[in-house]
Design a protein around this nucleic acid. Structure first.
Length: 602
DNA sequence: TGGGGTCCT
DNA sequence: AGGACCC
């Protein structure tokens, strides 16, 4: 390939690499790629990222909850809107935001389910997350129906696990390959592991992505067989590109995006409307449109710092935002897949557009109902993620000053809860009914600060939110993890060493020894509890131990040690994993190299 | 238009 | 506390 193309290619790949090696996850300017850009080791480290998206998630959940609905037209309603529908309903022409009226006209035989309570959706979402977490510790939630999975390490481990350098790999990617019309996988190439080092970086990158596409298929298959959810997915070197191709073929299909040489100048089409780019949202799109900028190509030609249009852009965006936008329009995104841990906030909301709330008594009633929902949700979060302090509480609302006067306004008031505790300790049996009234009292006080007494109002939205603090008892866990490598040491090693250089040795001396000896656990609660009960532990002790430990092995340790104790323990960190966990992941379904990988021909 | 979340300023 | 982004 031409020298210039080659250079750009390296720059682009480098900018999408492992963020720690690239400078704090910040987007890199392609034209100012770092000196490290030419380092072959870094180039070889381009990431493998999956974006997995459940098809019409709420509607699928309703089909699971009510199996007789399966295949018939189903819509999910919130207030007066049908927010989503299954594919049988979409065949009638139903679109995402249609009103209930329109939907009934288009499809009289449709079944409408109320989707205002998200509890069940949240449970299935968590189970899907836990499935993905068996393949990687880096799983990031985006809403209830989407996850990013960074499988870079697993890909590297599977390649390394080929202990016979003469063994042949059959290489073919799984699923579609953007923008090819036919399914890939038909053309295959045999490669010996010993040839690996002779491949150039581009081909290595493609081979790794092809293996990632196979891993993606495994994860989606597990989500389907274990939960019953179909999904669509994208595979590429960044969250952005993976996400953008994930919707190319739907439903229940996946697409691989290879950063091939012929696309390097324009990883994204020049005429792509800006709002299609993830990261450019409603507000930015409005501003760009006012400036006459509608496509990625127009952004790129306008964002040249010496150019005429740049000054106009600077009136609406700051320089940092412009750099980010430029990178996104080039198809460059170095943002890391952040392991989603326990939620940081918990909120409940209700809206009243059709039946306006105008009196203090109505507000009180609604606050009581919201407080009840909030407590229920908090208790659920505590069961799933452990017990954490709850230091802050806030109310936000949208209201109009009077019935027909001014425009809707938003407001928010926060307070510190101090000695008033919503959180419970693991063993504690609090009086949640009294708590409900106390929460409503405080919420009403906050409401008063936003809407003074005697002032007329029409309330449209009420929202209660709590913020979680750090888990207590950070030191307690050290006593459990003595035999495992410490989390911090492992993290430090990863920061200093390229992925390829760590975990090369198997301390058991036998690469096969650990295979399948540990049941896949992760954080899935119902199964985990059942596992512990089947091992002879009492159910309530098992639940409490799991709430504190989050995984079966640690819960077993705790139970054997006489726990769970009444003092809360720190949650295990999701973003570092022990050697045992890694080995387990490596040996996850289908570790065989035979089904792997790529079309090495151009 | 809903009922959730995250991060940045 | 508000605003941006995501679903």
């Amino acid at each position: 390939m031409a020298v210039e193309t080659e250079r750009r290619w390296r720059n682009i790949l480098t900018s999408q690499m492992i963020p720690e090696a690239c400078g704090e996850g910040k987007l890199s300017e392609p034209s100012t790629a770092r000196a490290a850009a030419s380092s072959p080791e870094l180039l070889a480290a381009s990431r493998c990222i999956l974006a997995i998206d459940m098809d019409c998630f709420y509607a699928q959940c309703e089909e699971i909850r009510h199996p007789h609905l399966k295949g018939r037209p189903v819509g999910v309603q919130q207030k007066m809107l049908v927010i989503t529908s299954n594919y049988a309903a979409r065949a009638c022409g139903i679109k995402k935001g249609d009103s209930l009226q329109v939907v009934r006209e288009k499809c009289p035989e449709i079944t409408i389910c109320n989707g205002e309570d998200l509890t069940f959706y949240g449970e299935l979402s968590q189970r899907a997350f836990d499935v993905a977490a068996r393949w990687s510790s880096k799983v990031e939630k985006l809403g209830l129906d989407e996850v990013f999975v960074d499988v870079t390490e697993l890909v590297a481990e599977r390649f390394r696990a080929l202990d016979d350098p003469e063994a042949c790999l059959r290489l073919a990617s799984t699923g579609h390959e953007y923008p090819k019309e036919s399914e890939s996988g038909s053309s295959e190439v045999r490669v010996r592991q010993g040839d690996w080092k002779d491949l150039d970086d581009a081909h290595r990158c493609w081979a790794r992505l092809a293996l990632a596409s196979e891993i993606c298929r495994e994860i989606r298959e597990a989500i389907l067989s274990e939960i019953g959810l179909t999904s669509s997915a994208g595979i590429s070197v960044s969250k952005q590109l993976a996400k953008m191709v994930s919707s190319w073929k739907k439903p229940s299909q996946q697409t691989l995006f290879l950063p091939t040489a012929d696309r390097l100048g324009h990883l994204l089409p020049d005429d792509l409307p800006v709002q299609k780019v993830p990261g450019i949202g409603f507000a930015s799109t409005q501003k760009l449109h006012e400036l006459g900028v509608r496509t990625t190509g127009e952004v790129l030609s306008a964002v040249v710092p010496e150019g005429e249009e740049y000054g106009r852009l600077l009136t609406e965006f700051d320089a940092g935002a412009l750099r980010t936008m430029k990178a996104l329009c080039l198809g460059i995104d170095a943002s890391p897949v952040k392991a989603s841990g326990a939620p940081k906030t918990c909120s409940v909301q209700d809206s009243f557009w059709q039946g306006p709330v105008r009196t203090d008594v109505q507000v009180r009633d609604n606050l009581l109902a919201l407080a009840q929902k909030l407590i229920t949700k908090i208790r659920s979060d505590e069961r799933m993620y452990g017990y954490r302090p709850i230091p802050t509480f806030s109310l936000s609302l949208m209201h109009a000053p009077s019935s027909d006067g001014g425009a809707a306004r938003r407001g928010r008031k926060q307070m510190q809860l101090g000695s008033f505790q919503i959180a419970r300790q693991p063993g504690e049996q609090g009086d949640d009914e009294r708590l409900q009234g106390q929460i409503a009292d405080r919420a009403f006080a906050l409401f008063r600060k936003l809407v003074p007494a005697e002032e007329p109002f029409v309330l449209h939205i009420l929202n209660l939110q709590v913020g979680f603090g750090e888990a207590l008892g950070a030191q307690r866990r050290l006593s459990f993890g003595a035999s495992a490598p410490s989390a911090t040491a492992s993290a430090a090693a990863q920061l200093q060493a390229p992925v390829e250089d760590i975990e090369l040795t198997d301390s058991d001396g036998d690469g096969e020894a650990g295979r399948n000896q540990t049941p896949p656990v992760s954080t899935e609660r119902p199964d985990a509890v059942a596992t512990l009960v089947s091992m002879g532990f009492a159910q309530d002790r098992a639940q409490r131990a799991l709430a504190q430990c989050c995984d079966v092995p640690r819960a077993v340790e705790m139970l054997l040690a006489g726990g769970p104790s009444s003092s809360p323990t720190r949650l295990p960190r999701r973003d570092v994993s022990s050697r045992a966990e890694k080995r387990q992941r490596l040996n996850c379904p289908a570790p065989e190299a035979s089904g792997a990988i790529i079309d090495l021909l151009d």
